[in-house]
Structure formats: structure tokens, C-alpha cells
Design a protein around this nucleic acid. Structure first.
Lengths: 207, 207
DNA sequence: TTTTGTGAACTAGTTCACAGCT
DNA sequence: AGCTGTGAACTAGTTCACAAAA
């Protein structure tokens, strides 16, 4: 199963949440695709890979499919997130409402700056010293590490994260880092995102 | 030219900046690939599309290629960015050092909350009322719009942005929005990113 | 009749491998 | 000898189109 599929499952889950709030009980791939600008065949193929969730002639039961998707995405049990880097971005992520909404638990922020260690974010996420990270991860208190440190610190931090036994990392820091097999790294590179758009404008912007 | 290629060009540019700082004058695709965990053939193909920048038997001149890439990415002239949504995330993005480093100019933050309009971010980016956005965009003061508003506001904001003549949008808000042809929309969905990682862990995490 | 699930066809993207230039 | 630029081969991802099920 590809990375792109995983992302789409997450999108489908959000669509279903919207539909449920609207009181929709059952939805066909065609209607779902139309309403959320997706592709019906792709929805069916993505879902069919994990089981036969649909009913021919009817479609999918919203509540039922939602439960299945949450389980497939591992959201049927709490997912604990530790954020390394308590700068502006790290703290914004710690307080991001979208994470809590889907059941993620932000365990703590981690930083090395004595100025902010011991303090907490606006919404009350505690800032611990990065030295604490390994102990907490080893104790099974962190499932996913989010890295939001300056570029020159990222290599060391990712090394620490991997050595702590973490197997999923969401990285916001720049750089072409590598992780050992068995560890999943997802990069969100803000500069690259913005430069891609600049490229589009520079090209004439007609595609 | 695909979106993925544009992203890689941005990555190459950053690699070259690092190399230049290290005093490297010339680099082959093979060495570049090895050092930054990239693919040599892909680097050559990506670059060759825009011109014959390399010298056979030698490689690429770092400073020269960097200039070319900056021009291709439209970074040879200032790119002006307006950020709509002055919440935690919007303000963190406004102050993000990586943007300034590559020559982006953060024109202003925009929000509708009277509580924060008139104030400014830590680094001094002014927060204007969203009503001002259209005027500034029409006056050519904004090239790229960054959207970081709550999910229920995103449709209206993107509509405003498009009506203001903006042709490149970086969206951090959730939802499957659509823009007319000729407008480039890039989504950074934080919840989807995190859920993809959760999916990987739930699957057993061995790929 | 409606809609799923899925093989087959298609499209996009990556990597190989080597001719040709320096 | 070394390295680029590029056609050809390959791999991955998407969409089509339809048989089978409710």
C-alpha cells in the first residue's frame, strides 16, 4: 500500500465525518466523489483493498465505513505524539486543533533551550528537555515524533528519535535526511512547498 | 513539468547552497546524489529539461547552476507572500526563518478577528483585516497566498483569494477545495500527514 | 436498476544504460 | 577517463469498463 493511498484514506475519513454531521446514512462512491471532488473508481479501489465494505446497489454505510477507516488508520486507540522543537512552529503544532479532533494526544514538547524548558504552550502542552525524550519513548509513551527544529539540528534529533525506538517521524525541518529501514519518515518542507508555487508562477502559470 | 519535479528543483537549490558554503566549486550528479541521498539519473534528467547546464567529464558549476535554478524557480526577483489567518499557525509561518532565507517577502498577515487586527507577529509582520487583502492583491503586492484558517472558513477565503486575482495558493486548512484552472493550489494537510504515519504503524510498520 | 469490486488499459514517473562530448 | 544528456525499459499509480451482486 502506497503513501498516497494512506493519505487518501485519511481524506475519506474526514469526508465521512462531514457526511455524518449532515445526517447522511449511506453514500455511493459516485456521490462521494462528486461531493468532495474525488475519483469514484479510486475510492472503490482504495477501500476494496482492505475488505468488502460496500453493498452493491446501495453504496457504503457512513458510520460503518468510518469505523473501518479509523481502525485501518490506527485511530481506534490513542496515538501519542511528541514534538521536538518548541519554537513558533513546534508550539503552533502542539496547539493545532485538528490533531486533537482526530484523537491524537500531544504528549509534550521537547527543547534544549533552558529559556523555554519547564514552560508550556498556550494550550498547556508542557515543554520538557530533549534529554527526556528517549526515556519517555522507551517507556512507550510516544508513538510518533514530530521534528520542528532548525536545519542544523535536524540530523542529531532524527538520530536521537531513531535510537529511542520511534518508528514514525513527521519532519518539518529542511534537509535530505535518511532513516533506517523500518522507520517511516514523512517530510513537510515548507520552503519547498512555497518554491514549487513560485516555480509555477515563473513558468507562466498555465498548467 | 510535474509538481514533483518542481519540488526536487527546490531541493537541489538547497543542496547547492550547502555545497557553496562548504567551498565546493563543481559537482557531478553522482556526487550530489551520494551526498544528499538522491538519484543521479533523476538529477540529470530534471536539470537537462531546462537547458544543458552541465559539462561532460566535469559536472556542474555550483554557483552557475544555483543561479540557473533560482531563475527557474522565479526566485531571481522578490516573491511576495500574504498569509490569511493570524492564528498560531499563521503567525508561526509569518515568522518562519526559512522563507526569508530564500528571498520570500512576507507582506502581511490577514485576519477578521478585531482582537488581533492592528497587532503584529513577534518578528513584526503586521496583521491587517482580511478586507484589505483584495485591494493589496489587485495592486500587485501579493504573488502567493498562504491560507491558514479554520476548516469552516477555508471555502470563503479561497474564493476571496481567487477573486483577488491570485494564481498560487498554499493551503494549510483541511478540506477538499477546488480552484479554477490557471490557479495553482498546493495543500499541506497536517492531519493527513500524521494519520498516514499512524496508518504505517497500525499496518505493522515494515515497509 | 444501482453500485460495488476488479481485471485490463492507460498514464505518469523513475531508473537503466550507453552514445557522445570534454 | 569521467560525466552529461537521453532514448529505452521499467515501475507505480490512475482510470476505464464491465461482470457480478444486492
Amino acid at each position: 500500500m502506497s503513501d498516497l493511498t494512506a493519505g487518501r484514506l485519511s481524506v475519506y475519513l474526514r469526508c465521512l465525518t462531514t457526511l455524518e454531521a449532515d445526517g447522511v446514512k449511506t453514500i455511493s462512491s459516485g456521490t462521494l466523489a462528486e461531493r468532495f471532488h474525488l475519483n469514484a473508481a479510486q475510492i472503490r479501489k482504495d477501500l476494496a483493498y482492505f475488505g468488502e465494505f460496500g453493498v452493491r446497489g446501495v453504496g457504503y454505510y457512513v458510520a460503518d465505513l468510518k469505523t473501518h477507516l479509523r481502525a485501518i488508520l490506527g485511530l481506534d486507540q490513542p496515538v501519542r505524539v511528541g514534538i521536538i522543537g518548541a519554537g513558533n512552529l513546534g508550539r503552533a503544532l502542539a496547539d493545532y486543533p485538528g490533531f486533537r479532533k482526530e484523537g491524537f494526544v500531544i504528549v509534550a514538547l521537547f527543547d534544549t533551550d533552558p529559556e523555554c524548558v519547564g514552560r508550556q504552550s498556550r494550550k498547556g502542552v508542557h515543554i520538557l528537555h530533549t534529554d527526556e525524550f528517549k526515556r519517555m519513548a522507551k517507556a512507550g509513551k510516544i508513538n510518533i515524533a514530530v521534528v520542528a527544529v532548525p536545519g542544523d539540528a535536524v540530523a542529531g534529533v532524527v538520530d536521537l528519535v531513531v535510537k529511542s525506538g520511534i518508528r514514525a517521524v513527521l519532519n518539518f525541518s529542511p534537509g535530505t535526511i535518511q532513516v533506517p529501514p523500518g522507520v517511516k519518515l514523512k517530510n513537510v518542507d515548507l520552503t519547498v512547498s512555497l518554491e514549487s508555487l513560485s516555480f509555477f508562477l515563473a513558468r507562466g502559470g498555465d498548467d
